[in-house]
């Protein structure tokens, strides 16, 4: 799937890059793909964000964090929540996927592999601890709505898998 074209004003990029996802702090909100636009008019910064899941409680925090960071950098910030187009796990950048894996969360697979894995048809999800794909689904819903709970049958560690959402 082609990456949607997202306009992020160059001047604002480093500031936004520093803001972490509140639930997965190793992941920048830019790498999570929730920032859909960041534009600048003089000192007025306007940022559009989209929720990962409708009820994601992190969205309010992300909005507040953006306002705080931009205000501290001397901008007048306005954050709007937009619904369309709906967020997709395809928008997590390669850097973001790597960060997830290093953090111990298996990054999302493509839609068809994801479906087979979640239906328990095939062992495809790679354990972020030991790299084995000898893993099984424990629960379709993990510690947050965006994750499923898996267990590795080699190293016996439970881990989160970031579910595919496209």
């Amino acid at each position: 799937m082609a990456q949607e074209k997202v306009h992020i004003e160059k001047e604002l990029e480093p500031i936004l890059r520093e803001i972490p996802d509140p639930e997965i702090p190793v992941l920048s909100i830019l790498d999570l793909g929730v920032v859909r636009e960041a534009s600048l008019d003089g000192k007025k910064a306007s940022v559009k964000i989209t929720p990962t899941y409708s009820g994601c409680p992190a969205m309010d925090v992300i909005g507040d964090d953006i306002v705080t960071a931009l205000t501290q950098a001397g901008y007048e910030a306005q954050v709007d929540l937009i619904l369309a187009p709906a967020w997709s796990t395809d928008w997590i950048t390669p850097v973001g996927r790597k960060a997830l894996e290093d953090y111990g969360i298996a990054p999302p697979m493509d839609a068809s592999a994801d479906k087979r894995a979640l239906l328990g048809e095939e062992k495809l999800v790679k354990c972020p601890q030991c790299g084995s794909t000898n893993t099984h689904l424990v629960s379709q819903f993990g510690s947050t709505a965006c994750k499923a709970l898996f267990k590795c049958d080699d190293c016996q560690e439970p881990f989160d898998y970031f579910k595919c959402l496209i």
Binding site: P51, Y53, G55, C56, V138, S139, Q140, G142, T144
Partner: peptide, 20 residues
């Protein structure tokens, strides 16, 4: 624990939709 978390996650999704 797993079903508890699943049901409350579903609840959260639904409340999110309600807000929209």
């Amino acid at each position: 624990l797993e079903t508890d978390i699943a049901l409350t996650n579903i609840s959260l999704d639904l409340f999110g939709q309600v807000r929209s």
